[in-house]
Design a binder for these strands. Structure first.
Length: 313
RNA sequence: GGGGGGUUUCCCGAGCGGUCAAAGGGGUCAGACUGUAAAUCUGAUGGCAAUGCCUUCGCAGGUUCGAAUCCUGCACCCCCCA
């Protein structure tokens, strides 16, 4: 049985990084009388503008945007916080009588909205660090064995090297007394694409790569390096998420003297392509997604209208 | 001109007579992913009619039952002396 969530009847425009989501979304929002909610784990951060390709005020048109610039670069965040914040947005926007249009390329957040999250304990970083340190004292498969003892079903799904997920599974068991495998069952069931409005802008791979390359060059031209310097000058250190964002991580390494500027630009392009690839793996795996093939130059009006038409068939 | 080091599979780089289609890393391809997700983890990666066959370690020869590994010559690159 498919599950219903607050986002079940919302609209979504997603797709790999640099696929032109913002432009299409602004056109679509005007046609369906929607407000936009960002579906992007990095646009949440204030002061990270260039490297996240955050839609600038000028690109947002007359449309209200939500969940952009809501946390500081030193703050940590989580899917659960995101989903909670997004559901609040949904209720408020609906109360104003408008449609809700999610726009962005963070597939985990997408899945969380579409299928809901299980009620679990929040992250306990002290616990995680302790477990991680303890694991390092033991043989490589130790964490996996620990989990297999309390939650064999979860252990069977996780690779012995998947430290992060093994630790979270143990954390859930420790805090709630329940095996994570028992709590997280709703996530496997999706809804058929034609019952949803989840649209994935889908470019031929080579063209997407060209768009990525051009965008990365533009980011450097617009001052990505200065933006990173400003972030590093802040009294609070960057959060682990912010620090590892594509574009930021490489520039930090460059400022550290690890790569030349030229190498850095190339690395950012390469890592952005890899990100796009992983995003597409997600979209292929989610039955809710409908792919919108893009040909030639992106014409936002044309594709916004095409998407509206797709929902009227 | 003399002496020394080097040339390895897409890239970097180990290998220094058999167990080598060749470690490791990168890239690429594919997959996973529920409180870090632009993160993290996994698998594949010379070719093929594929429990085997064929091609590959700068080029051409040679030694050997057997060579990426030893010898000879040639080409290119680097370093030192002149």
């Amino acid at each position: 049985m498919a599950n219903f969530t607050a986002a079940t009847d919302c609209w979504f425009i997603t797709g790999a990084t640099a696929s032109g989501k913002t432009a299409v979304a602004v056109e679509l929002a005007q046609r369906i009388d929607a407000e936009i909610v960002s579906l992007d784990s990095m646009a949440l951060y204030r002061h990270m503008d260039i490297g996240t390709a955050k839609p600038r005020p000028g690109e947002r048109g007359p449309i209200a945007h939500h969940l952009i610039d809501v946390i500081e670069p030193h703050e940590e965040y989580s899917v659960a916080q995101y989903v909670a914040a997004a559901e609040k947005c949904i209720h408020e926007i609906k109360a104003r009588g408008r449609e809700v249009l999610f726009v962005g390329g963070t597939p985990l957040y997408l899945k969380g909205l579409l299928r809901g999250l299980f009620e679990g304990p929040p992250a306990d970083w002290e616990f995680r660090h302790r477990l991680r340190d303890e694991a390092q004292q033991h043989e490589p498969g130790w964490l996996h064995e620990q989990l297999a003892a309390v939650d064999p079903k979860a252990a069977a799904r996780l690779h012995a090297n998947d430290t992060r997920r093994l630790i979270r599974a143990l954390e859930v068991y420790e805090k709630s007394g329940m095996p994570i495998s028992q709590l997280q069952q709703q996530f496997d069931r999706g809804r058929p694409a034609d019952e949803c409005r989840v649209f994935v802008l889908n470019w031929p791979r080579q063209v997407l790569h060209q768009r990525i390359n051009r965008r990365v060059d533009a980011m450097f031209a617009e001052g990505l390096i200065d933006e990173v310097c400003t972030l590093l000058d802040k009294p609070e250190p960057l959060s682990r998420t912010a620090r590892k964002a594509v574009g930021y991580r490489e520039v930090i390494e460059h400022l550290d003297g690890r790569h030349t500027l030229e190498e850095t630009v190339e690395l950012v392009k390469q890592h952005t392509r890899q990100l796009a690839k992983r995003q597409n793996t997600w979209f292929r795996s989610l039955e809710e997604c409908r792919f919108v093939p893009i040909h030639g130059e992106l014409d936002p009006v044309k594709y916004a209208e095409r998407i509206v038409a797709m929902t009227q068939q």
